[in-house]
Design a binder for these strands. Sequence first.
DNA 1: TGTACATCAGTGAACGCGCGTTCACTGATGTAC
DNA 2: TGTACATCAGTGAACGCGCGTTCACTGATGTAC
Lengths: 192, 192
Amino acid sequence: VRKSRQETTVTRARIVTAAAAQFREHGIAATGLADLMGAAGMTHGGFYKHFASKEDVVREAAQFALAERRHAFEVYARAQPPGEELEALVTAYLSMDHCLNRSGGCLMAALGSEIVRAPDTTKALAMEQFLAFVALIEDLLGPRHQVDRHGIAVTIASTLIGALTMARIAPAPDLAEPILAGARTHVLANWA
Amino acid sequence: VRKSRQETTVTRARIVTAAAAQFREHGIAATGLADLMGAAGMTHGGFYKHFASKEDVVREAAQFALAERRHAFEVYARAQPPGEELEALVTAYLSMDHCLNRSGGCLMAALGSEIVRAPDTTKALAMEQFLAFVALIEDLLGPRHQVDRHGIAVTIASTLIGALTMARIAPAPDLAEPILAGARTHVLANWA
DNA sequence: TGTACATCAGTGAACGCGCGTTCACTGATGTAC
DNA sequence: TGTACATCAGTGAACGCGCGTTCACTGATGTAC
């Protein structure tokens, strides 16, 4: 049942999208190729017509998810009134919506400690995307911060990722909320 | 080859210690019971004389590792000259030593995103330990911070965990170092 | 433009492998008298 | 205190299962003339 070149491209993209969601929802190790292909609406056998190995799709899914999320945050932040961009980004990142939406949220918060053990090529690509996110924050930083803007942006990004991960460890939303709120309050108090 | 009650207790503790190191080094899903028991100097069959399931030893290893690390940080910090305790803790947590020592370091940074998917009992225990770490930081916070000390401590703890995780994603130490240094500088500038 | 053939996306069965868990067995330890 | 028996920590083989990967096959798509 050969498919046209255009259909093949679309199918491949559908697998990457499904993989990005499944990995973030259930973790990389816990997501089997059959789960992943099933979520993309296919059987597992066809996987190797698109990718050479599981590690291959992990790399592509990570790249896709990180770039997509960063782009969405950037569009959202830049649509805000001047001077409120950073506050909007921080508030959106640390929202209960984001906390509950693992499969569509930040891949670093969803898979951070699994990426640490990924092959170097995957880690390098994740680091590139992290630094691009840091660059976005740096760009949104108000003019009152003149020295070490990069260091401040690294700190803010780390706080967001750390706080969201901890909030998700909370076994109930009423324990998660104060973690998100605390981080939001103090990041904004210091830098927005 | 029955062992004495005392030996049995020691053996059980050895398994928990080995498990805590193996899980932090290689991840929970990637560590098999055979690896874990091998690291404790036994064969895998004896595992079920001490634990009811893998999830059981995960829970105990997490509890142990988090409590042990927090205790060590507390002892270290309180041994510093008055007023320098928080700076010492932050510096130690964000050191390259800690970054390279996954198997003996902070379990949240090593396994954060795997704990998110653990059963609620494990998540609850991890959250308790996180809040105890937050309480330690709150206690070390200087007297110039009077309002929302808990919120500040939550933010600092999140920043430490997030920054260490990101530093470990860096594929080389020269990319990890500025992340640790940036977070250290700005946490100390704001709150120490 | 039409025809014949090669290509290849997707299916579903099969592969070896390592996982968590169970079990029969061993022999030193604990207990009862 | 000594003896007989029950207990149980640890071993190593075995269990079923699901994993990543391979493969023969199908039939629509792409290509060559």
